[in-house]
């Protein structure tokens, strides 16, 4: 499977980012830091997601936006939390499975009585599990 770099962000309802992670390909780590640019691109793509939501019955919206050679895939939960993945290689099936599984983890976080909706996810277990999923599907 192609190895690429991925930036993953969960944006809760009300456009508040609640979780973010980067999974970089080993070869690209020496390059300059583009995480700020990536955030900007993902932020810009949110509008595209809001449009795309109404065109599909699926929660996985596939690729919703492009920026140069970068692609943005999105997955919208019924609670309108948007999971965005910025990636530079095509890997539709992997991203679909990844987002589907992260959705399950996200539901578990929401069920935690100590978590309030729209609050940033600070749980270490969640982070570790997302990274494990990324390793499984995105490399």
């Amino acid at each position: 499977m192609a190895t690429g770099s991925y930036t993953f962000v969960i944006v809760a309802q009300g456009d508040t980012p609640v979780y973010g992670a980067e999974f970089l390909a080993a070869a690209k780590k020496d390059g300059q830091d583009t995480s700020h640019l990536n955030q900007l691109i993902i932020h810009a793509a949110l509008d595209m997601v809001d449009d795309a939501v109404w065109t599909s019955n699926n929660m996985y919206l596939k690729t919703v936006d492009k920026f140069n050679e970068l692609l943005i895939s999105a997955y919208v939960t019924p609670g309108h939390a948007r999971m965005m993945v910025l990636h530079d290689v095509r890997n539709e099936d992997g991203i679909r499975s990844f987002l589907h599984d992260v959705h399950e983890l996200y539901v578990k976080v929401l069920l935690n009585p100590f978590h309030s909706a729209g609050a940033p996810i600070r749980s270490d277990t969640f982070d570790a599990r997302v990274r494990a999923l990324a390793k499984k599907y995105l490399t």
Binding site: K108, L111, N112, P113, F114, R122, S123, T125
Partner: peptide, 10 residues
């Protein structure tokens, strides 16, 4: 304790 994770402050 299903689903529960204690936040740091408690």
């Amino acid at each position: 304790v299903d689903f529960v994770e204690l936040p740091e402050h408690c």
